[in-house]
Design a protein around this nucleic acid. Structure first.
Lengths: 182, 182
DNA sequence: AGGCTCATGTAACCGGTTACATGATTAT
DNA sequence: ATAATCATGTAACCGGTTACATGAGCCT
């Protein structure tokens, strides 16, 4: 239950079409929130029914017509209410199928588990690598943004990198303990 | 798509009822996978249709009758296939509404954001605190488990604690940078 | 000719959440 | 008395995923 608030967040900086929003999502929050374009259109409909956004069709000759969405006052209220509102529970953030797998990996051999954790660690490194473009992306979009906005974008990047690094450190510790067994 | 595998994982150690499974979930993986009892019954039905588990009713006189589930060979195959199978994508693990909130917190004041992050940090500490019982739980259940099983349980606890600790460190860094602004 | 950009959707499905429903026995 | 334990479900809903459908114009 976050995509609608993300949409409101983007619309707060200016009116956009569903298509624009999809691009905005994909080029910014994608590394932690991959959104489907179709889902964005669905959410826009819901948001309009709740009167948190409003839309009007812009007729175009060369390109296809488009529906431009704007945030309403009620939408802004909802956005800021959400921003200053209560936290999401940490339990939800920990709920990963990976941990479920680890929990039952005791049925597996040490070799298998070392292999599994090595694979995991490698995937983490790959992900970390793919996140190295983020500072450039922030610099690009930051031209038109406030210092505070840029800072908060950097916070999300920091969080992402820290999380992946923690995973790498953790798997290293686990592998070490598995090797001590044999 | 992990709960069914968790069920198979528990049934691998022995036959159980839905009720037993619910207790097993709640007293072990609960800190990273809070499962609803009703969902467990639904999944058991699905697993039986797929012939990964089989059940038979045990008539009781004093207590109500119960349906005991056992894992089939196909179920064991599925379990071990899943255990040694490909990784879940890290992107999913990063997909938290909290990051969405942080991303748009640039619209908020420094004071508001410091307050928000302080609240978050406190909640993390509380969660860390609540996780301190886990070693005892592991010791309790570990009596009947192999060294490898215990080790993997500890891995999940380590992961959980490391994750929360990372969140605490991260919010500390963020707050520091916010304070430098003013 | 082939692929990209612009532009907007529908439909089926799925895992999971919340809330509700029932009812006997046993321990405090 | 009343709370907990044992025991199993149904129903409505919800956010999100996957796949599919359409179609004009522009660039190479």
């Amino acid at each position: 239950m976050s995509l609608p608030h993300g949409i409101l967040g983007f619309l707060y900086t200016g009116s956009m079409t569903g298509y624009d929003l999809a691009k905005a999502f994909h080029s910014s929050v994608n590394f932690f929130w991959p959104a489907q374009t179709s889902q964005i259109y669905l959410e826009l409909n819901k948001l309009e029914k709740k009167q948190l956004v409003r839309s009007n069709v812009v007729v175009q000759t060369v390109k296809p017509n488009k529906r431009v969405y704007s945030i309403t006052q009620a939408g802004k209220d909802e956005l800021f209410n959400w921003l200053s509102g209560g936290m999401n529970d940490l339990q939800k953030d920990l709920k990963t199928s990976f941990l479920m797998k680890v929990f039952f990996s005791g049925y597996n051999s040490a070799e298998n588990n070392i292999h599994m954790l090595t694979q995991f660690s490698k995937e983490c490194s790959r992900y970390l690598e793919s996140m190295k473009e983020i500072p450039e992306t922030i610099a690009f979009y930051g031209e038109a943004a406030s210092a505070m906005e840029i800072l908060c974008w950097e916070f999300t990047a920091d969080y992402g990198a820290s999380y992946i690094q923690m995973c790498i450190d953790w798997s290293k510790r686990c592998i070490q303990r598995l090797e001590e067994l044999s």
